[in-house]
Design a protein around this nucleic acid. Structure first.
Length: 277
DNA sequence: TCTTTATGGTGAG
DNA sequence: TCACCCTAAAGAT
């Protein structure tokens, strides 16, 4: 569940059962962290914060747990204390009287004094969070036009956590498709209208992904595809993972390429290239 | 049983 | 830009 919207969703689920409640059980799966478990017993969770794809679980004794799911991490929340049957490795367990929140497989976990989180090297580099409810499309538009971002290719920008935190590889393809912009274009070459569209798409697609649990398609199209019996993985995205399949808007085969060592998808017709590519 | 791939990120050159 | 780290599932043999 790696990109910003899904991380925020996971955070909501965890917050619903942990925030304000006393921790009655705690376990760290990584050997180097095991000694920390007892310091969380009897404490309360104040807040589950997310910054891009990073999650911060804040406790009432001034400590916080940093976790980043990378590609593999996955949170489970269950009622009671019976853990799910799984072959995944348990990396963090937090329990209350009534619930368990379990993080599996993630390896990037650390314990911090809340006050010292400003020193966290990854967090310090993050740009504005796409899931920040206060972030407006005008903010995004302004950000895009800042130096040095305005001179870089959109494909690179939309993976760069220093530009906007929380974007990831599928959002990159999906946002640029929604905005109708070729990934090789640069903000400095965009018209006022294109900039506005890009900024609005950035927020609209990530917020939709949050609401739907990872589906970027407009609800009407998504429902249509459900009726056609497509499996969930086949009916999430406009272009991501759909190489050579027809574009939902124009029928042109979706093209797959590579940018920043990650696969990138776009519709050659709906997202015309800088040189008519 | 192997190799490959992945919605992520780091650090060296 | 590249090699590398991380872990799990899917694909190839």
């Amino acid at each position: 569940m790696p990109e910003g919207p899904e991380i925020r969703r996971a955070a909501d689920n965890i917050a619903a059962v942990l925030v304000g409640r006393e921790i009655t059980g705690a376990r760290f799966g990584l050997p180097r962290l095991r000694r920390h478990a007892r310091s969380f017993l009897g404490r309360r969770v104040i807040d589950i914060e997310t910054r891009g794809k990073a999650m911060l679980t804040h406790f009432d004794h001034g400590q916080s747990i940093y976790s980043h799911n990378q590609l593999y991490g996955v949170w489970h929340v269950v009622e009671g204390h019976t853990l799910p049957e799984t072959s995944r490795s348990l990396r963090l367990l937090l329990q209350t009287q009534t619930h368990s929140a379990i993080l599996y497989s993630a390896s990037d976990i650390s314990v911090w004094q809340t006050a010292e989180l400003a020193d966290h090297p990854f967090l310090a580099r993050l740009g504005p969070d796409i899931m920040d409810p206060g972030l407006t499309w005008r903010d995004v538009s302004r950000r895009i036009q800042e130096q040095p971002f305005r001179e870089r290719e959109l494909a690179a920008l939309y993976l760069d956590q220093a530009f906007l935190a929380g974007n990831g590889n599928y959002l990159r393809s999906e946002i640029l498709f929604d905005a109708g912009l070729h990934p090789r274009k640069r903000p400095s070459a965009l018209s006022r209208g294109e900039l506005g569209r890009l900024a609005r798409s950035t927020l609209a697609i990530s917020r939709r992904s949050y609401e739907t649990g990872g589906i970027t398609l407009a609800p009407r199209l998504a429902n249509q595809l459900v009726k056609q019996g497509l499996k969930r993985e086949r009916r999430r995205f406009y272009v991501f993972g759909r190489s050579d399949r027809p574009c939902y808007r124009c029928g042109t085969p979706i093209s797959r390429s590579e940018a920043n060592s990650r696969r990138l998808y776009h519709c050659p017709h709906c997202q015309p290239g800088p040189s008519g590519e």
